[in-house]
Computed example of a mutant assay.
Amino acid sequence: MKPSIPVYDICSISTGHKQEDLLAERMSHYLKKNYQRVHQQHGHSFFHMVFFTEGSGSQTIDFSRYAVTPHQIYFMVPGQVHSWHFNPDVDGYVIHFSEAFFRTFLLDHDYLDRFTFFSGNSKDQVMTVPAGSRKDVTALLEKILDETAQQEYDMVRVLLLQLFLTIEKCCGKDGTKIIPQQKQLVLRNFQQLINKHYRNIKLPKEYAELLYITPNHLNALCQDLLGKTAGELIRDRILLEAKRMLTNAGMTVTQIARELNFEDNSYFSRFFKKYEGITPDEFRKNLN
């Protein structure tokens, strides 16, 4: 069965690029080489960041559409899908880095999880850099381009971390509370389990057993940290995968229902319409 959408690594998404763990370029240069590829719905195996300095258009991240404006910055994590719909005047900076890029550099391998824009939730990943921070952000990105050109990759790592801290400080939500590390770990493990088992495990109590906690504890944790129940997180992941599969014209709705382990096509269609407001066939038509 062919995949719903193409999934690119750093080298395959950018024509002629050879460094498999890092890409840092000006947007105008990047688009000249890869315009057609990035304007189609696709997935990433890497972390992705763009800062727009000028231009307009729109982009979709996991099927949510956002208007593009100058001084907007957005992040994506591996596994997310998106497409661009830019006007010709767009410019800025593009950075890709692999999951392995910081692995031997940081003692805490989960360090990036502390940043809200690496949550995998598109609503937390698209921000506008305030006027007072734009000069600092631009200066950091220029340094990253310079150090990348000189293949000084440890310096790039330091500058990227400085950039992440700057963005979190200037764009973070007001009143964001500090989350204890143990709670972060449980939530991250739950989300990883969902990504691994969402086709076969549908109930929060089954995930709670895998995490060695009670269903009530899991549900309270999700509501406290994300404002959603554990069941809603599982449902959202199933719906996201259904949407990704619906982009594949070679798969029927019946095949998608079977892939997602629904009892039958009608049950899947009712489930999809209940939470999306339209049927799977209507969603597919709207993609055109």
Rank of each mutant, 00 (worst) to 15 (best):
I5H: 00
S14A: 13
T15Q: 11
T15H: 10
E20P: 12
D21M: 08
D21T: 07
L23D: 00
A24Q: 03
R26T: 09
M27H: 11
S28G: 05
N34V: 07
Q36Y: 04
Q36F: 02
Q40S: 06
Q41V: 00
Q41Y: 09
H42K: 05
H44W: 05
F46L: 03
M49G: 10
F51Q: 07
F52Q: 11
E54S: 15
G55A: 12
S56Y: 07
F63I: 07
F63A: 11
S64Y: 13
R65W: 04
T69M: 12
P70K: 05
P70T: 14
H71W: 11
H71M: 12
Q72G: 13
Y74G: 06
V77A: 10
S83M: 09
W84I: 05
F86L: 15
P88N: 13
D89Y: 04
G92Q: 11
G92K: 05
G92F: 14
G92L: 12
H96C: 08
H96V: 07
F102P: 05
L106I: 06
L107S: 10
L107Y: 04
D108I: 06
H109Y: 01
H109S: 11
D110G: 10
D113R: 01
F118C: 09
G120I: 00
G120Y: 01
G120Q: 00
N121M: 00
Q125E: 15
Q125C: 14
V126E: 06
V126F: 14
V129S: 13
A131D: 15
S133L: 03
A139H: 01
I144H: 10
E147P: 05
E147H: 13
Q150K: 14
M155D: 02
M155G: 05
V156P: 01
L159F: 13
L159V: 10
L161C: 09
L163A: 11
E168T: 06
E168Q: 15
C170S: 15
C171F: 08
C171V: 10
C171Q: 09
C171R: 02
G175H: 09
Q181K: 12
Q182L: 12
K183N: 07
L185E: 10
L185N: 06
L185W: 07
N189I: 01
F190V: 07
Q191T: 04
Q191R: 02
K196M: 01
H197P: 01
R199K: 13
R199S: 02
N200K: 09
K202I: 07
K202R: 13
L203Q: 15
L203T: 11
E206S: 09
Y207N: 11
L211I: 08
L211Q: 05
I213A: 06
P215E: 04
A220M: 08
L221W: 06
L221A: 03
C222R: 03
Q223S: 06
K228P: 08
E232L: 01
R235P: 13
D236W: 01
R237Q: 13
L239K: 03
L239N: 10
L239G: 10
L240S: 11
R244K: 15
L246P: 00
A249V: 01
G250W: 02
V253I: 12
V253D: 15
V253T: 15
T254P: 03
I256S: 07
A257W: 02
E259M: 12
L260N: 01
F262M: 10
E263R: 13
E263C: 07
Y267T: 14
F268P: 12
S269F: 00
R270A: 14
R270T: 11
R270C: 07
F271R: 05
R284W: 00
K285D: 14
N286T: 10
